[in-house]
């Protein structure tokens, strides 16, 4: 644990106190530069040391959420606990199972140990739904060994990698190890891969995202996470102050302070191909300098962009049926 007290010097956003890299204003420029470069050198060695990267211990469960009132159910993930190098940040998440599921903020170099539980009725009582009552977490983007694939044995040839009754193995819970290795920065989906079929229930509410930032990445005033599904946007927003996850639900109206930098994270799920549009705004197509004002996005693709919030806008899916069904929301800019 002693090592981990050094952790804030990496300047990563998961430190609850990120001011540790500030220096005294009384130093001369030369002295400041010298110290800076020495510190940078030290930080480099500290940060590449694996044992110094943040260790996330996460426990989540899946629940049934009664949504439509006519007997048809969706499911959702709920955060039970999340510690980063022993610091508990569970308060950032909702106390309830939510659609979308928790957004996990990670930094390149981190490791994650995530344990999934299954509170869907019957799942632990030997009741098999379809070929499997398991719930799993299959993550995109980061590194993991085959035992952490979050799939059924029929796919991975190793194990039914979820919590609950599976066709080959039954587990009360299942733990995954993710290596958030260099080169994995980006926004990635995680989703169930095991419930009822070997395709899982990603289209029935069991999805969420990880946001992997590079070391020393910029901060955004607001993070807007939007999932494009076959009939609605599901989303949430996160304020950089406190990192509290809010506004879970359908076609949320996002709020940004005027002229603040906000980041949109789009992930598609389901079967439809979407065309996302944020009226009156342009942004750089990721990995390029091309400015675009709409983007085609298909299931499990991601598209991340930032804009300066200058004016109210409507975001929408221009897909014919989806737009007519009301797949639109607002970006409200306040002063």
């Amino acid at each position: 644990m002693l090592f981990q007290s050094n952790r804030p010097y990496c300047g990563m956003e998961f430190s609850e106190n990120s001011s540790a890299t500030q220096y005294t204003p009384h130093a001369t420029l030369l002295r400041q530069l010298l110290i800076s470069s020495l510190m940078a050198l030290a930080m480099f060695f500290l940060c590449v040391g694996k044992s110094l990267a943040a260790e996330h211990i996460i426990q989540m469960t899946a629940e049934e959420v009664h949504e439509d009132g006519f007997g048809s159910k969706l499911m959702a993930y709920k955060m039970l606990s999340h510690t980063v190098n022993g610091t508990n940040i569970t308060h950032r998440y909702s106390n309830h199972a939510t659609i979308p599921g928790p957004t996990l903020f990670l930094t390149e170099g981190d490791t994650v140990n995530l344990t999934i539980y299954n509170d869907i009725p019957g799942a632990n009582a030997g009741v098999l739904k379809g070929i499997s009552s398991q719930v799993s977490v299959h993550v995109h983007g980061v590194h993991y060994k085959i035992v952490s694939d979050g799939t059924l044995k029929v796919i991975n040839q190793e194990d039914d990698q979820g919590a609950g009754v599976g066709p080959a193995q039954t587990h009360a819970n299942y733990s995954y190890t993710w290596d958030v290795a260099p080169g994995t920065a980006g926004t990635w989906a995680y989703h169930d891969h095991n419930y009822e079929t070997h395709n899982g229930a990603e289209h029935k509410g069991l999805f969420g995202a990880i946001i992997v930032n590079p070391v020393g990445a910029a901060n955004y005033a607001k993070e807007f996470v939007l999932y494009l599904t076959d009939d609605a946007f599901w989303g949430m927003e996160i304020d950089s102050h406190g990192m509290k996850q809010k506004k879970h639900g359908i076609n949320p109206d996002f709020i940004a302070r005027k002229d603040s930098e906000v980041r949109f994270h789009l992930i598609a799920l389901g079967t439809d191909i979407h065309k996302f549009k944020l009226s009156g705004y342009q942004w750089a197509d990721p990995g390029t300098n091309n400015m675009i004002n709409e983007v085609a996005i298909g299931p499990l693709e991601k598209h991340v962009f930032t804009v300066k919030a200058t004016k109210n806008a409507q975001y929408s899916d221009e897909n014919f049926t989806n737009k007519l069904m009301g797949m639109v929301g607002k970006l409200k800019v306040s002063h």
Binding site: H140, G141, H143, A185, G287, T288, A296, G298, E301
Partner: peptide, 23 residues
């Protein structure tokens, strides 16, 4: 379609953007 390969990453053509699913 969207193509996805588990646990592998690659570059979106013409960019340095890392992806694991492509429309």
């Amino acid at each position: 379609h969207t193509f996805h390969l588990h646990a592998h990453r690659w570059l979106k053509p013409g960019t340095d953007s890392v992806i694991d699913t492509k429309l």
